[in-house]
Simulated scan of single mutants.
Amino acid sequence: MTITVESTGTDETRRDQGSNEVSDRLIASAARMSRNAMTEIDWNEPLDPTKYGCSPEWSSLYGTDMWDELTEEQRIELTRHEFASISTNGIWFEMILQEMVIRDQYLGEYHSPEFQWSLVEIADECRHSLMFAKGADVMVGTSYRPSKFVGWAGKAFMALAKNEVAYSAILVAEEVLDVFQRGCMNDDRVLPLVRTVNEIHVLEESRHMKFAREEVRESMEGVGWFRRQLSALIIAIAGFLIVTSLHSPHLYTNAGLDSKRAMAVKKNNRHFQSMMRESCVHLMEFLDSVGLLTRPAARWYRRANLL
C-alpha cells in the first residue's frame, strides 16, 4: 500500500453535502433498518461447542507456533475470549463516544436533523453496548477493560477532544472494530450468536462512520498547518491506545494460556499484523485525503500495525 503523508487535502476532500442533508438520510435509514439484538437473538440457546468466537484467521495467535500447539478445544475457547475482549473494550470506547457526541450537541439546534441524528447514534451505541455485554456474559461469563493508564487517558480524551480530533478518533475505533467483525460475520465456523452480533453492529456502524467522515471533512475546512499537525498526532496516539487495548492480557489467562508468552507472540505475529494493515487501507486513505496522515501520525499507526 502506498500513501503519501503530509497531504493538505484537495478539493475532493471538501464537503459536497451538508451535515443536515447527510443526517436526514441517516435518520431515514435507521428508521428502516435498525435491529434489536435483545429480541432478535435467542440468548438462552445452548452454544455449539464446535463453533469459534471469531474466524480462526482473525485470532491474534493464528499462524504462530503457539497456535499450532493448541488443541481444537483450546482454539475455540481462545477465540471466544478474544471476541469478548474486543467487544467489551469496544463498550469502553462507545461510552467515550456517547459523551463526546452529547457534549458536541449540548445547547445545539434541537430542531436540526444533525441534532436528531446524534440522538439516534447515541441510542444505537447504548444498544450496541448492551449487546456486547450480553454476548460476553453468555459466551465466557466475564468482560474486559483497558488498563488503568488507558482508562485515565480515555477520561482525559473524553473531556478535551472536539471537532476533527473527536470524530476522527471515533472513526478509527469504529473502523478497526468493523474490520474485525466483517471478517467474521459470514463465517459458518463462528457461533451464530456472534455472527448476528457482528452483522447488526456492522450494519448500524456504517451509518455512524458516514456521519463521522462528514464531520471530519467539515472540521478540516480552512484548518492551518499547526492545528492539522497537532490534531493528526493526537488522533494517531488515541488510535494506538484503542487498538492495543482490544486484546486484554487477561483473556489469555482466562483461556488457559500463558499470558506473557501469548502477548509476546501476538506482538510479533506477522499474519495478524498483515490482516490489520490490509483491512485498514480505506481508513488510512481517508485520513490522508483530509490531511490527517502526517509523518509523526504515520509512525503511531505503524506501531499499531494499521499502516
Rank of each mutant, 00 (worst) to 15 (best):
V223L: 14
V190A: 03
S206K: 07
S259C: 02
S231K: 07
E204F: 11
F211C: 10
R213G: 01
G256A: 11
V176K: 12
F286V: 07
Q273N: 10
E205H: 15
S279N: 13
M276R: 11
V194R: 08
E199L: 01
V179A: 13
V190P: 06
S259G: 04
K210P: 02
M209N: 14
P249H: 05
L191H: 04
V190W: 05
R261T: 13
R217P: 02
S231Q: 06
H250W: 06
E218S: 06
P249Q: 05
D188V: 04
S206E: 10
D258H: 11
E285Q: 15
V281Q: 06
L171Q: 00
E218R: 10
D258Q: 11
V265Y: 12
V216P: 10
R195D: 02
L257Q: 09
V190H: 04
G183N: 08
M275R: 11
T196R: 13
L283N: 00
L283W: 03
R217N: 09
H208C: 14
P249F: 09
F211P: 03
E205S: 14
S274G: 07
R277G: 10
E214N: 15
L251K: 04
F272D: 06
R217A: 08
L203G: 04
M276A: 00
K266R: 15
H250S: 13
F226V: 15
V194T: 12
F286Y: 14
V202E: 03
A262R: 01
W225P: 09
S231D: 15
I200L: 10
S219M: 08
F272Q: 02
E278P: 00
N186M: 08
A236L: 11
R227G: 10
A262P: 05
L283V: 07
E174R: 14
V202T: 08
R189V: 08
T244Y: 02
L287T: 01
Q229K: 14
M284T: 05
G222P: 01
M263R: 03
M284P: 05
G239A: 08
H271T: 06
Y252Q: 04
R228G: 12
I234A: 07
M284S: 01
V216T: 11
V216C: 14
S248M: 02
M276K: 10
G224S: 12
V176N: 09
L193R: 12
V190R: 05
S231H: 12
L251T: 00
R207Y: 13
